[in-house]
Simulated assay, not measured.
Amino acid sequence: MDETATPDAGPEAPSGRGRVGRRSRGAGPVAYDFRRPTKLSREHVRTLQIVFETFSRQYTTLLTSTLRTVAQVNLVSIDQLTYDEYVSQLANPTHMAVLSVEPLPGAGVLEFSVGTAMACVDHLLGGPGAESQPERALSEIESTLLRGLLDRVLGELRYAFEGVLRLEPVITGIEYNPQFAQVASASDMVLVASFDMKVGAVETVATMCLPFNPTLAALDAASNAHTTGERERIAREEAARRVRERLQDVPVDVAVRFGGTSARPRDLVNLQVGDVLPLRHNTNDPLSVTAADIVFAHAVPGAAGKRLAVLVVEAPENSNPQNPQESA
């Protein structure tokens, strides 16, 4: 079964799971949509499996040690969806931690049910974490407690991604209505990892959402870095050496310029043959030698045989080679 296939809509989940239409571990085969083929190769899927399985193990250990209760997080699926498809499968309300995921452009989401969030807070306060939890937004104190836990969870996500890229996830906001979470446009592709999550007696399907195209680019870069052999490395170094050598023979247009001056438009319009236009260039000052409007040397005029020439001299102390406001 292709693990990147789009999950089908299942029966309504029990209230304790806090999800409608999410695929669970026991779901059967899923129809493949040939109108929107997956862009994830087998190597990409395998890399993501390693990343998210590492994350789920670390997540499990963190929840168990912090909440002091039996907790379990298991990877269920990795899907390529549009953001609209992802949001439409989430319960309302749900707990969505909106993330910045530098260096990836865009935003991500760490999501699980409100009941699970309340159970975590209950355990943090020394409670039993009963299965029946209120379905409401967290108070300021509850949010602060859960935020500390989530910051540590993001540390585990950073650790899991170390082999692919140096991800720096940071919580930028909390939303309870998925329709209000401004993470991406409806048609943008996202990468969604789904997890079976259990905290004490409360179970849910948690999700991790990341921008698809930037994540795919990071996977390609990591794959190329790992598969480059010694022979390919030597070939690249040789090609770079040849490019550097050939650049030394590329012809470059060079100009020698006097210092510039300023004039009013009416003076330029009235110029006639024989008029004299004074330049702001002292007769003792050297000329500027430029290429692509960048001054790289100074010179004084002269002759070489029957041709005009310049002699390169030291730059004057007050010269600014990066800002040549000069005219020919």
Rank of each mutant, 00 (worst) to 15 (best):
residue 188 D to R: 05
residue 79 D to P: 03
residue 208 M to H: 03
residue 35 R to L: 13
residue 3 E to F: 12
residue 10 G to P: 02
residue 50 I to L: 14
residue 252 V to Q: 12
residue 317 E to I: 11
residue 293 D to K: 13
residue 83 Y to D: 02
residue 27 A to G: 09
residue 320 N to P: 02
residue 123 H to W: 07
residue 224 N to H: 08
residue 100 S to I: 00
residue 276 V to C: 11
residue 314 E to S: 14
residue 54 T to P: 01
residue 72 Q to C: 08
residue 222 A to E: 11
residue 61 T to H: 12
residue 309 A to T: 07
residue 157 L to A: 06
residue 34 F to M: 03
residue 246 R to V: 00
residue 298 H to D: 07
residue 206 A to C: 05
residue 4 T to I: 00
residue 154 L to Y: 08
residue 146 L to T: 07
residue 263 A to C: 09
residue 290 T to E: 10
residue 111 E to S: 04
residue 252 V to T: 10
residue 310 V to L: 13
residue 282 N to Q: 10
residue 204 T to G: 04
residue 309 A to N: 07
residue 105 P to K: 09
residue 112 F to R: 04
residue 197 M to L: 15
residue 5 A to D: 14
residue 324 P to R: 01
residue 291 A to E: 13
residue 287 L to G: 10
residue 325 Q to P: 01
residue 104 L to T: 04
residue 151 D to R: 15
residue 259 G to K: 09
residue 155 G to T: 07
residue 225 A to M: 10
residue 214 P to H: 03
residue 136 R to L: 09
residue 59 Y to A: 04
residue 56 S to W: 03
residue 224 N to Q: 14
residue 6 T to P: 03
residue 32 Y to Q: 10
residue 300 V to W: 12
residue 291 A to V: 11
residue 318 N to G: 05
residue 18 G to H: 09
residue 227 T to D: 12
residue 304 A to R: 09
